[in-house]
């Protein structure tokens, strides 16, 4: 099967049951996307498909063919971090960092969806991303900042 990941064509030979998450991590060598629950409940595996945030653990890789997949590796341009990545760094919006790629992918989509109007709106629209370290306060701060309302 052929996937379109971060603007690159990736050709893989995989079983139909392979999730997009496993395809990215185990076969395409893109380990930035994380596996937490593998059941849609934690958001660690969040990527964008055709610009929309989805959980890659519940997406079959074969069904992502012909669509544009963006992962955390595809956000920066060269050494220039995406403003959301920079805001997470600036606000120390993590502790162990395991949930961070999913948080950032979700946060980038949230701003594009127009859901950064208030802290309450940010919180509700980040509810699909769980942080076991409880870095929520700084995550909200980073998103508020990146959305340009700091």
């Amino acid at each position: 099967m052929v996937l379109q990941v971060n603007g690159q064509r990736v050709s893989l030979s995989l079983e139909p049951r392979t999730s997009l998450l496993d395809a990215l991590r185990e076969y395409a060598g893109l380990t930035g996307t994380k596996k937490g629950c593998d059941r849609g409940s934690c958001g660690a595996c969040t990527v964008h498909i055709d610009g929309r945030r989805v959980v890659s653990c519940l997406t079959l890789a074969a069904r992502a063919q012909g669509k544009a997949v963006t992962t955390i590796e595809g956000l920066a341009s060269g050494d220039d971090l995406h403003p959301m990545q920079a805001a997470f760094l600036h606000h120390d919006a993590y502790q162990c960092g395991y949930c961070t790629p999913g948080q950032i992918m979700s946060a980038v989509a949230l701003v594009q969806e127009g859901h950064a109007g208030s802290d309450a709106e940010i919180r509700e629209n980040m509810s699909g991303n769980i942080c076991r370290c409880g870095a929520y306060a700084n995550i909200v701060g980073a998103i508020r900042d990146a959305a340009g309302r700091a």
Binding site: G40, G43, T46, R52, R53, V54, V55, L58, T59, S106, A109, L110, E113, H115, N125, S127, G128, N129
Partner: peptide, 8 residues
Amino acid sequence: ASPQIRNM
């Protein structure tokens, strides 16, 4: 659910 699940 969550925004991600609602997109799917």
